[in-house]
Write a protein that binds this DNA or RNA. Structure first.
Length: 589
DNA sequence: GCCGTTTTCGGCCCGACTGTTTTCAGTCG
């Protein structure tokens, strides 16, 4: 695990322990904020820890947290974390992971009933002893029991590729449920995060009740958690995955849809920053609109105060003196300052993509023939598609040895001769061995139009080894793209933790593209890595790693990840004209 | 514990819903 991830985890755990102990909530919030900022940081804290000014320049990092970062880099520990860990059994923090159990209840469970593990909680629910606690009735106990079952079955976050189709089908159903109804999804899904905690839906309709009913009575609903006049929460069965995912619906007034979208899209940190900005301008912002701050005793919308802006997000940003900020950027990572300065990036969009540069055919583990692949690429409006089947070491994927590769290249060239309107490139996805050497020799690589080099195994190497390995591939004169550089699988495999800054600098120097693999199980590079690559000046590829026709549909997840990394279109090789792409591929051949 | 166009102290975003209460605490986003 990288230093950043570990420091973020220790700070977050410290905050959780402080919360259970009932300590000052602002100190807790400060640690949580620092943890979030650090986990999304592009630079490696281990590299800059000596530079105190650089640490203090990080949002949310002050003297105390800078001390903790330096302490961690020096000793591998944070003493304050250890002290709290002495006072609280570790299982108590697991209890906080159960939805509906907050620090107060967890603290009570621990102190009053000595419940310090999920198993202990389960026993107390079964034997009814949990009912001894103050404010703990039968209904609360039942709610906790269901929440516990939920965490055990599918407690972790859901990949965007699973959640997005669910959200889209809910939107369609709600819009059909009442005349003139409008529905949109918000939350981290709209921001394009690689995983989501839940699905947030907003709806407007004259018949709010009909929309709410349609939401709660949908066939996928396994359980209704809340059913208010404007807010409903349910747990849904997520397709055939066997897991459950929470979905929340808010029914809002059409005239305040923009304010609601802003509020429910988040992120939390972005919203807090916007509210602080509003306050500094004598305004107050909530999910009903941007209002003059008249210091009234009740919320302005309750008193019929006319909002300064509410209907659209753009109007609210405008009244706050900001350009409209695309959802993918709303993470409080400098987007507000950029919007104020008119310096937001000209972000890439799905329509900009006109080449797929990582695709497999039946020659290795794909399901399409070369020709079927080419036709599908053409149908999607692409000017170029690269056939990049696996190299010889990928025996499980039917990787090609040199002899088969030569035949394959001839077949690709033959198809390319026949096709009109789309260029089919002869390429390969070549394994990067653990030491950074490649799976084909240079003479073989020189036969190809394009080389994607990817790590597929030895994905538990030490960070320094991984950095050396990937650097060697980036510096290789015949490598055009490094595919899914860390090899992570979301929720399943952490993958490599190379020094991203070093890789990006080398990629910029050698003109080698780093790939965002658009498959929703990978999304690797991840958003923060893309941001580092953009800042370093490295080219980026967004590829679908096509194995079947449907894989092309994953492009949108890759593009959302790119946007989260502030990627402008002209830095993405897949968005270049055929001519520019050819010139780049020919630069060293 | 952070932070500053209200600035080095004294604030720190705001509302919906539930359950167990008779007016509100806890949780969530």
């Amino acid at each position: 695990m990288s230093a950043n991830a570990e420091i973020a985890r220790l700070l977050d755990e410290t905050a959780a322990m402080m919360e259970v102990l009932g300590e000052n909530r602002f100190r807790v919030a400060a640690l949580q904020r620092a943890s979030r900022v650090i986990s999304g940081l592009g630079v490696d804290l281990a590299q800059i820890a000596q530079d105190r000014e650089a640490l203090l320049a990080i949002d949310g990092v002050g003297d105390k947290i800078a001390d903790k970062i330096q302490e961690y880099v020096r000793t591998g520990r944070i003493a304050e974390h250890d002290e709290y860990a002495q006072r609280i059994p570790s299982g108590v923090l697991d209890l906080l992971g159960v939805p509906g159990l907050g620090p107060k209840t967890v603290g009570l469970l621990w102190r009053e009933k000595n419940i310090t593990t999920l198993a202990g909680l389960k026993r107390a629910l079964e034997d009814g002893s949990i009912l001894d606690l103050p404010r703990m009735g039968k209904r609360s106990a039942e709610r906790i029991a269901r929440a516990l079952a939920f965490t055990e079955s599918s407690g972790s976050r859901t990949p965007i590729g699973v959640a997005m189709p669910i959200a889209e089908s809910i939107v369609v159903r709600l819009e059909a449920s009442a005349r003139g109804a409008t529905a949109v999804y918000a939350g981290s899904l709209r921001r394009g995060r690689d995983t989501v905690g839940d699905v947030d839906i907003l709806a407007c309709a004259t018949d709010a009740d009909a929309v709410s009913r349609a939401f709660r009575e949908a066939p996928e609903v396994a359980e209704v958690l809340a059913a208010g006049a404007t807010k409903s929460s349910v747990r849904l069965r997520a397709g055939d995955t066997g897991r459950l995912i929470q979905a929340d619906l808010r029914v809002v007034e059409r005239r305040a849809l923009g304010a609601a979208m802003l509020y429910f899209t988040g992120s939390k940190d972005h919203n807090v920053a916007l509210r602080e900005r509003a306050r500094a301008r004598g305004l107050t912002l909530n999910e009903y609109g941007l209002f003059p701050d008249d210091g009234g005793p009740t919320p302005p919308q309750v008193r019929g105060v006319t909002p300064v802006a509410a209907k659209t997000e753009a109007a609210i940003y405008s009244k706050l003196g900001l350009a409209h900020i695309p959802p993918e950027l709303r993470e409080d990572r400098g987007e507000i300052a950029a919007a104020e300065a008119g310096a937001l990036p000209d972000l890439i969009e799905p329509d900009h993509i006109s080449a797929e540069l990582h695709a497999h055919t039946t020659a290795s583990d794909g399901s399409l023939s070369i020709e079927a692949l080419a036709r599908e690429a053409q149908r999607r409006g692409f000017h170029t598609v690269a056939v990049t089947d696996h190299s010889k070491s990928q025996t499980v994927a039917n990787g090609l040895d040199e002899a088969r590769l030569r035949e394959h290249i001839a077949s690709i060239r033959a198809v390319n001769e026949r096709m009109r309107g789309v260029t089919v490139l002869a390429g390969a996805e070549v394994d990067i061995h653990a030491d950074g050497s490649l799976d084909y020799d240079d003479d073989t690589l020189a036969l190809l139009d394009i080389v994607v080099a990817s790590p597929h195994w030895a994905l538990t190497q030490k960070p320094a080894d991984a950095t050396r390995r990937l650097l060697r591939a980036i510096e290789h004169p015949l490598v055009d793209i490094v595919g899914h550089p860390t090899g992570r699988l979301i929720g399943k495999r952490e993958g490599l933790s190379p020094d991203i800054a070093e890789l990006c600098a080398a990629a910029a120097e050698h003109g080698t593209a780093l790939e965002i693999n658009a498959h929703w199980m990978r999304l690797d590079l991840r958003d923060t890595h893309v941001r580092a690559a953009v800042e370093a000046g490295a080219p980026i590829a967004i590829n679908c790693d096509v194995h079947s026709e449907r894989d092309f549909d994953n492009l949108r997840y890759g593009v959302m990840t790119a946007r989260r990394g502030w990627l402008p279109a002209d830095r993405c090789v897949n968005a270049w004209s055929a001519r520019r792409l050819r010139a780049w591929l020919g630069r060293r051949r």
